[in-house]
Design a binder for these strands. Structure first.
Lengths: 196, 196
DNA sequence: CGCTGAAGTCAACGAGTGTTGGCCTACAAT
DNA sequence: ATTGTAGGCCAACACTCGTTGACTTCAGCG
């Protein structure tokens, strides 16, 4: 947090350290098992500081998670390649640097925590669905809103299923496949859900 | 548990009550949030009894979960229909009566618990992969073991993704779709992973 | 210097957890 | 009826958690 005129404060570094440690812990342990004490220890700070800066564990989680799918502009992508482009995009996002794995952090927490669940629902409704609506539906007709929502849901089911089996459950065959193989084999699935 | 000669004991009913309550709680709350006290309360029993019967929470979980996919015999199913049959099978399993939702219970717990994760890996390796191996690969050739494993992984990613978005995250469009629609739209995906 | 307010430390509280051991109860066999 | 034993309950332990309030340290400024 900066001053009102933008001058940095001494506490900025601490705040960032807490947020970074929180993101790593939440992503690897989930909301419940990520303890304030562990996060504070990672940030080399007293647990009380976390409360001072963020008020409560729930508010720290809300501040740490930033569910931005960062969907690229798909309007310039050839329609036939939409599926593979989307799969490649998500694979790259998940394999990104630590502290940026908001989606995995949300996914792991959403299994038990209701706030994380709601956040997940909102993320997909507000970010994925509009993009799919812009893409347009099947061959000629304009897809109705219900049809768009269904497509978004199906796309989410495959992409989140991929994140689940690869990064959370770590099913060996899914972990073993490299990026290109996954794009090659899962891409057509997404493509069909988009323009099938 | 019956006596050595099969004679039922007085404790059998209690044991079953604990297991039933445990399955419901583990499935709806996950391993961490499902407390021994809550399970005991549901079974109208003292928490200490749970320990007496099962020794520990971890052993109770191990006893409660029964990850049997109950995959049907696919050898008599026409190849073209394999995808839809599999999707329909899993949808029916998840919508079954409470106390039988081992897969959801495992899935919810696997987000944070490592034992549940390992159990999940073993379940798919030992039940799904052999069935797919029996089905055989693409057009003519015999699929190698690596190829079969990859197919099983991809099938798992879509089916578990469906379970995740429909029953755990409860994304509205996925929840709204009825059984037949899902079979119709997800079936071809599984079909392609199986025989693509 | 001294003063002020922010930044950080420390110890503790209260609630909830899995787990344990002692005690009571009821049934079956003698 | 007495006794042995399995089934059940109660209270407590040891621990971890999020959270709180009082205390100390430090930077900046007159």
């Amino acid at each position: 947090m900066a001053d009102i005129d933008g001058r940095p404060r001494r506490s900025d570094a601490t705040r960032r350290a807490i947020l970074l440690a929180a993101r790593v812990r939440f992503a690897s342990d989930g909301y419940d098992r990520a303890t304030i004490r562990a996060i504070a220890a990672d940030a080399r700070i007293d647990p009380a500081m976390v409360m001072r800066y963020f008020g409560s564990k729930a508010r720290l989680f809300a501040a740490a998670v930033d569910p931005d799918l960062r969907l690229p502009d798909l309007s310039s992508v050839p329609r036939r390649r939409l599926g593979k482009v989307l799969v490649a995009h998500f694979l790259d996002r998940w394999e990104g640097d630590p502290g940026d794995d908001s989606l995995l952090m949300l996914l792991r927490s959403a299994a038990t925590d209701d706030v994380a669940r709601e956040r997940m629902r909102h993320t997909f409704a507000s970010q994925l669905t509009p993009v799919l609506a812009a893409i347009g539906g099947g061959s000629d007709e304009v897809a109705g809103p219900d049809e768009v929502a269904e497509r978004a849901g199906l796309v989410a089911s495959q992409l989140l299923g991929l994140a689940l089996t690869r990064h959370i459950l770590r099913l060996p065959p899914v972990v073993a496949m490299d990026r290109d193989s996954l794009v090659e084999r899962v891409g057509p699935t997404i493509q069909r859900y988009l323009t099938g």
